[in-house]
Design a protein around this nucleic acid. Sequence first.
DNA 1: TGATCTTGCAGAAACGTGTCTGTCAATGTG
DNA 2: CACATTGACAGACACGTTTCTGCAAGATCA
Lengths: 342, 342
Amino acid sequence: MAAAAGVSITTVSDALNGKGRLPDATRRHVREVADRLGYRPSAAARTLRTGKSGLIGLTVTTYGDEPFTFTEFAYFAEMARAATSAALARGYALVILPATSRHDVWSNVALDGTVVIDPSDQDPVVSELVRQGLPVVSDGRPAGSLPVTAWVDNDHEAAVLGILDHLADAGARRIGLLTGTTTDTYTHLSTTAYLRWCERVGQDPVYEAYPAHDPCAGAVAADRLLARPDRPDAVYGLFDPNGTDLLAAARRYGLRVPDDLLLVCCSESTVYASTEPPVTTLSLKPRRIGTAVVQLLIDAIEGVDPDHPVEQVIPTELIVRTSSQRRPPRTTVSPPRSPKGT
Amino acid sequence: MAAAAGVSITTVSDALNGKGRLPDATRRHVREVADRLGYRPSAAARTLRTGKSGLIGLTVTTYGDEPFTFTEFAYFAEMARAATSAALARGYALVILPATSRHDVWSNVALDGTVVIDPSDQDPVVSELVRQGLPVVSDGRPAGSLPVTAWVDNDHEAAVLGILDHLADAGARRIGLLTGTTTDTYTHLSTTAYLRWCERVGQDPVYEAYPAHDPCAGAVAADRLLARPDRPDAVYGLFDPNGTDLLAAARRYGLRVPDDLLLVCCSESTVYASTEPPVTTLSLKPRRIGTAVVQLLIDAIEGVDPDHPVEQVIPTELIVRTSSQRRPPRTTVSPPRSPKGT
DNA sequence: TGATCTTGCAGAAACGTGTCTGTCAATGTG
DNA sequence: CACATTGACAGACACGTTTCTGCAAGATCA
């Protein structure tokens, strides 16, 4: 390359990177030759020299024995998508690296930092990364004393309390919970918030827990919850598929939603806008979380003083639909055109 | 590191990589010291020297003006997940790189090869990569004369024909299609197959097309299709959300599914197992596709003679549920326990 | 005993950058 | 005219590996 342009290696480097003292003519000449040759500087050499690879790891912890539940639900998909876009906008790319990955894969890729989704209590991967001096930002408040650089999370307790109040306002007398058996922070915080709320208002807790990674177990748990002698008249489901499972279970038992059963579930899926009836959902705003996580991480990588606090709480959004309103709002959404022959 | 173990750099490299002629004692000693120091060889230096980075690009083309529609639908999520697992099993990691990404991001990461999902006709990214000598494997038959190393796809024409026959067998007299306005191969092949089938059986085509990346447009198109004077008595929807949109539209027009309207849509989502009624879906088997694509790519990278052909066709699977059967099967799935008070 | 072979390891080159330092000419300054 | 300053570039080193070659010491052999 240097030979082709008739200049030294130094001049090429300076010309392409806009450094050094070069007349514009030389700069243009070098760039032109580079374009003509299709020359691309070696990423490996640049990384070796500068110590920066422009790569960010995206780590998803596993539920149970499943090898890898990336994008098991819409949340991860949305979050990963936003994170990728945010990283790209700042010149970084994301590398998908599950936490169960073999060690050699981790050490085979030069990372500038890592995003960890829902790290477990004593996550060995996180400890190892921190020990190497790499910044680690987690989606989800780190449990225990995990030494992450920063974290982003919703206020899950407030969200659950808000939903329970919302259901109680709609007339619910006994609110049930569909929760998970796993020990991650989300499940834990949400469940304890539910239990505390029950204690406060003097309601006996009514909940079923199941391994969240198993969709069939979710359907069974939904059915069990509605089959109980102390059947709730309102249910909040912590996981994405709970809504359709609960609707199906309600149909089996002849329960009308929302008349006999109020329903809310935590989901990012748009299907709940057009189910029968539409289901009220809690959105955790994964796009905002994914963006915030990446911004914090890149700030840490580049040594920028973060103008945001290193602990960010993203507000949730309750999207109220028919399933949680005893008296459904009078909808005036008429079909655009009346079909022929009706 | 070499100094700490009291040996030379060469010995360290040989000991850790299992090469050279070393007695087991030295090998063990070096590894022990490396463990104690938490030493990890530099990925950048290794890449620079060997020319292999262990990184595979995963490129998602964009629909319309959307910057990045990664995992817009369940298909991409499942496919990406399978691809990641398959890559990891062979010691590779995936880097997410949208096709619209700025050039500098592409050249900032050292890739061994790339997976391209649904490349467009004259995809400049693919051409550039091939010019650099990198293997490129595409998910989806490449349109035009795109010079990919290998590709994997379903037989979309056969799948559509099979569905249309299935609907006709169930009693459909006029089958409609919900399709897209984009020019990707999937949409194109499916639509022409539909048109050819119509011509063969002598039915007037009844279809609505909409920009597939816009979920609201999908709901509107579903509504329009059922509002037509020549309303179809069966519909096949090419995209994931079409099922719920069509169900909602059918409800608006008072059409019973499957009695008045037979329904099939192409989807990987499990929600269609528990909608009212459950919807027959066509699965494109994204897991098998993701796995196959990565295997082919890594074979090409490592110079392995592929024992599979470089053009692989993955069979689709039609999951027949209530929505496409005029006479629904007598279900004997009784609820596990009768709820109290019913 | 000297010659050849094997074993166990060290030296050094190369990968392709970024960057520090140095050189040479042209220009300004007293 | 001597000297400092500045512009425009080239040389050389370092990043941390992998790998080829080489060298000494012991083993084997004629």
